[in-house]
Design a protein around this nucleic acid. Structure first.
Lengths: 341, 341
DNA sequence: CTGTTCTCAGAAAGCGCTTTCTCACTCTAG
DNA sequence: CTAGAGTGAGAAAGCGCTTTCTGAGAACAG
């Protein structure tokens, strides 16, 4: 009897109490509560009466133990403050809710080191996992994969270890670069995301592949990060590249960058064009509206749930999909005077 | 035996298996795993060996049932897409994690109607609740309160029903109005939030109280909402008021508004000043940087956890606190030509 | 050398459900 | 009127832990 009774507040009713109240067995109560009861209607009614009289609601924990499932899934992401992850979470949560599942969140904060432990721990609290861990070392990921099933991976490929939903950052960057190229820009700054981040790697590879095709395009790399603050702080470095346009790791960074550039008295896009990546909800409302590569984050969350659900049910999760970012041209980019002649 | 065995994937090891492997009783394994073991070191070691050999990790569900607690708390908010709620969630999650608690999310979406049920359900899955339900009817709230304990309420007062963390929207609005007043504005538009929302009510009451003190200040109300889109759509109505400055329900709305105003060829703050509320992270990075009333959302989450933790431990949660928004003057507001003469 | 106190670890009950088995009983058919 | 099938609901086992209780043996004192 582990529980210490809380003196005043009485405990929630148990199935046994309801059974006693209704003069039936717990089995019957269980069946009635789960609509599996087939006997006399008056018995069922008696049970319902008793249940509502005692304000009974079955214990999730006990149910989970008996059933072997919790009806919850985990979502692990590196930083819940980033609107992109929030959007994935929203999509996931809303869709999972429709199937009666709830989501447990695991914000690994900045500590990449603890991520594997956190992930294992949180995964064990529920039935499945959506993992968004762009900076986790590949070996940690594959090492963990076994104990994490069922799971779906977002923005990570891991050799048939789990269904994966990815965004083609590479092609997104290429579209953005092409757009800038067509506007006449030939000298561009790229503000990096975290260097360990897989998705930053893809972006860089997009850059390489583009410059290979268009040798007259020059892309200067600058340190950045993942948040507005990072963009704000990158202003000086960007300015020094003398680039006529900047590509930021994501919209957050782009927004900080624009703020900083304008603070500095520069006009965007008059003096310098800026493009982001993600198309977070504000992107179109900031001034100037931000040119970006649109990624359907909510949809990623939704699809993640569908795949997870299939996995949970033991069905085929279907093919992996790669979302193609859509170029969203807005006012923050334009051809202009400072274009390298 | 409810569980249907999944043919191929073998099940996680149980405490009994570890006990067998180590040649001890489950009780001993339990004690070792929980650092409550006092016997011979070699016995403990044997257990650890066996546990790691079998890759054993205790079942959270079983543990929860035996212990009568889940080490998880719920966070229910009306819309997880709103950065303000996300910030609360971040603060809550990060702080709760430090104490080994995880958070379960309940996004009630737009459906105010289902909110009470959702809330009860999700609350029963864990040990406690942080409820953010600005639009829930007061009677629903008080009716539910009993079955929701322990909980802490955010931005709702409910007569000693639970610890409450609130933001003094009223004084925030007053500061903002005073700021605009001092800049010379006498005719202002206020873009409402949801009309059932308690926090919108507070804002309106701040307006009334301000205009009572400053009869020469005129505040015209306009329909709005809670998201950027709503602000964007309110542009026409705002324009028609001929106001020289606009106060938006929150920063999101303000951002949409600014975007729309600028689309329309108006300059902010040249032609019209705009102020928001919340001070979401981007607020200072948009152009022009947004004047707003800063609310420490993350801190709300943090404090919510501390109070919840006290409640869970049966301690005194301490006094309720009212956070005072801090006026954050940035470039989106200024005195200007269109001021009513 | 016996009686008492410790120490260490196992037995078993219990957490609150679900579900399989079982059995008493009622129908229908022969 | 009896054998066989069909029905409705309870008994009990089990989900995987924790913890109290218990008891065997070691250590100690007299």
């Amino acid at each position: 009897m582990p529980r210490k009774r809380n003196g005043r507040s009485m405990r929630a009713a148990t199935i046994a109490q309801v059974a006693a109240e209704a003069g039936v067995s717990p089995a019957t109560v269980s069946r009635v509560m789960n609509n599996r009861f087939v006997g006399a209607e008056e018995v069922a009614e008696k049970v319902r009466q008793a249940a509502s009289k005692l304000n009974y609601a079955p214990s999730f924990t006990a149910r989970s133990l008996a059933l072997g499932q919790t009806q919850a899934v985990a979502f692990v992401a590196p930083d819940l403050r980033n609107p992109a992850f929030q959007a994935i979470l929203s999509g996931l949560s809303a869709t999972a809710n429709e199937d009666g599942y709830r989501v447990l969140i695991g914000d690994s904060g900045e500590s990449v080191a603890e991520e594997p432990l956190l992930t294992r721990e949180i995964r064990r609290r529920c039935d499945a996992l959506v993992l968004c861990a762009p900076r986790m070392a590949q070996e940690d990921l594959t090492g963990l994969a076994g104990s994490l099933q069922p799971m779906v991976l977002i923005n990570r490929t891991a050799e048939g270890v789990a269904p994966t939903l990815t965004v083609d950052y590479r092609s997104g960057i290429e579209s953005l670069l092409k757009h800038l190229y067509q506007l006449g820009h030939r000298r561009i700054a790229y503000v990096n995301g975290p260097l360990q981040s897989v998705s930053n790697e893809y972006r860089r590879s997009g850059i390489s592949s583009f410059t290979a095709d268009y040798p007259d395009m020059e892309v200067l790399q600058v340190d950045g990060g993942v948040a507005s603050q990072d963009g704000f702080e990158a202003v000086e470095a960007v300015f020094e590249t003398q680039a006529s346009a900047v590509l930021a790791f994501n919209d957050l960074v782009a927004i900080g960058l624009i703020g900083g550039l304008q603070d500095k008295g520069l006009s965007v896009p008059g003096d310098i064009s800026v493009a982001g990546f993600d198309d977070i909800p504000f992107a179109r409302y900031i001034a100037p509206p931000l040119t970006t590569a649109s990624v359907p984050h909510e949809e990623l969350g939704v699809q993640a749930w569908y795949r997870l659900r299939s996995l949970i049910r033991g069905e085929d999760p279907g093919y992996d999909v790669v979302f193609q970012p859509r170029l969203e041209v807005r006012a923050s980019t334009t051809g202009h005077s400072r274009v390298t002649e």
